[in-house]
Structures are given as structure tokens and as C-alpha cells.
Amino acid sequence: MKRSQVPSTWVSVDQAVKWPARTQCFAPTVKRSNPIKPRLFPQNFTSAASQRQQLFESESSRSRSDFRNERSSLLNRVRIVPASPSYFTAKPTFTDSLLELQALLRKYQTLPLTPPGTAPQVAWKTLAQWQAANGDEPVKPSKYGRILSALYRLNQIHPQLMPEEVQIALDKNKKDFNPYEIKTKPSFLDRFGRAYGVGRRKTSSARAWVVEGEGDVLINGKNLAGMFGRIHDRESAVWPLKVTDRMDKYNVWALVEGGGVTGQAEALTLAISQALIVHEPLLKSALRQAGCVTRDRRRVERKKPGHVKARKMPAWVKR
């Protein structure tokens, strides 16, 4: 390899000499010219050109007798080696990251942990996101799992005793935003004692205001029987009140739009249930069991070419 071809991130041996043996690697002692940041392959090597320049300049001032003695050490110094000892693992960034995390783990393994299940919820980078941030190395999911398990364990260190370097290492591997930090805005009764809820199903959406009362229901200005001809749909609409035995304790005033009859009835289920939870938050688990909490995300499946409908195929005809 010619000098001019040497990648710029290679360093001379005298720096490399400082590398501790792999077995003694308690902490990441690899000195990097740059802090870890996404780098493309050709930049994975640091140049020691400036050091070499200094070296040859100092050579000229040295005495001739020293020259021979220093010749071997010079060779050591000018010989170009990769910056990371993991260079020949083919996944140096990954290996370095893993080693770094494992070193941190070893270093802080005696720190107390949070009680099980109470560690702060964190969304770690997915493998693709991690790869994009770390030079697109070909890392297998199973290997990335090792990083994740180290991160999980480090995250369990009690927050009050969390060392700064661990925090930095954790932050590096978090997603850009933490979805677990998004909390729904708590709803309250308004000054008239009304609770508000929204529900959707298929293409219908419903808004319901629930107030303490005697079981009157008014939807789009019509009563329940006027709104829904089928008894099944009427039951769907007031299902949250029925399963919790609250049918004669609340009044409902609702607006529904879009979709068909069934969609509107089932959109109302969710809307009324949400408003009922504002009145009585403890009913949530019962309502969840009754299927009144989770939005059904199914919509009409699109038609495909060659099919009569979404899945239906035309009848087979003998030529």
C-alpha cells in the first residue's frame, strides 16, 4: 500500500503501542482522534500524516549515532495501523460499541437497580436506525440483540445513581423521540358535569357527551329507536353502559357522522365508553374486557386488479 493510498484514519504504531491487551480491556482505552459519529468507510481511518511530517523534521536534527538505534522504533512509529483494534473484525463500529457497553456494564455492575418493571420505558433504536447511525455495517439482528440486552441492563441502574458516561451511552442508542413519553391529556368533567368522548369505526366518527341522568339517549337529535332500526345496533351503541350496569344512571347526547349504520353504532360504543371512563376511571378494565376501549382499525380492503372484489376471483370458465 502506497503512502498516498493510506486511508487518512490510520495511525502510527507508537500510538498503537499504547493499546492494552484485549484481555485487559476493562474500559474502552482506544483513543480516537474523533468522537464517535457516523462515518463512511473511507473515513474509518485517521491519517497520521502530520505526525509523520513531524517525525521526518525531527530526524534531520538528530545525531547520526542515534539514527541506527532508532531505526527499528521509527519503523514501528511510521508503520500504519488502523485506529480501532476491531478493524479486522469487519464490523469495527459494532464491536467497539458492544465492547464499550460491556465495559460500562462491568464497571458499574454493583450499582443498585430499580425494582423490576419500574425502569424508565425507553424506545431503543431499531437495527436499521442503529445501522444508519453507525456506518451501515452489516450487523445481524441476533448480534444487535447483544447490544440491546446490554442497554436494557444499563437502563435498569437506579436513576439517582446513574453515572454520566452511562447516560451518554444510553442516550446515543435511544430513538430520536420516545413514544412512551407521550401521555394522553387527562379529560375532566366540564362545569355542567358533562364528559366528552370520541370514537371511530370504519369510516364513522362519533362524539358523545355523557352526563349523569336516567338513561335518555339522543343521537343527532333522534332517539335511539329513531336512529337505529336494528335492536342489535342500539345495543352496540349503549354497550358500555349495559356491561357496567349504568344504563339508567347516565344520559347520552351524541353526534355521529360518516359511514353506515353499523359503523356509526360501533363508533358510538367507543365514544360513550371513553366519556364513561372520565366519570368512572375504574371501569376502564371492565370496558376493555367488553371490547369498548380498543379502536378496531380495520377498514374496507382495497380492490385488486384481476379480482372481482378485494379477494374474490372471477368464476372459472372453460375457455
Binding site: D216, N223, L224, A225, I231, R234, D245, M247, D248
Partner: peptide, 23 residues
């Protein structure tokens, strides 16, 4: 029971007799 009557009363759109009979 009171709950049964209340339920059918609501389902019948506020005590509509024919609807209550249907339900």
C-alpha cells in the same frame, strides 16, 4: 327488575311501547 326495565326502556328509544315489545 329495575335494571331490566331501564335497559329495555332505553333500547326502545325512551319507552316507545312498540319498540319495547320488539326488544
Amino acid at each position: 327488575t329495575e335494571a331490566f326495565v331501564g335497559e329495555k326502556w332505553t333500547l326502545a328509544g325512551g319507552g316507545n311501547l312498540g319498540e319495547m315489545e320488539k326488544a
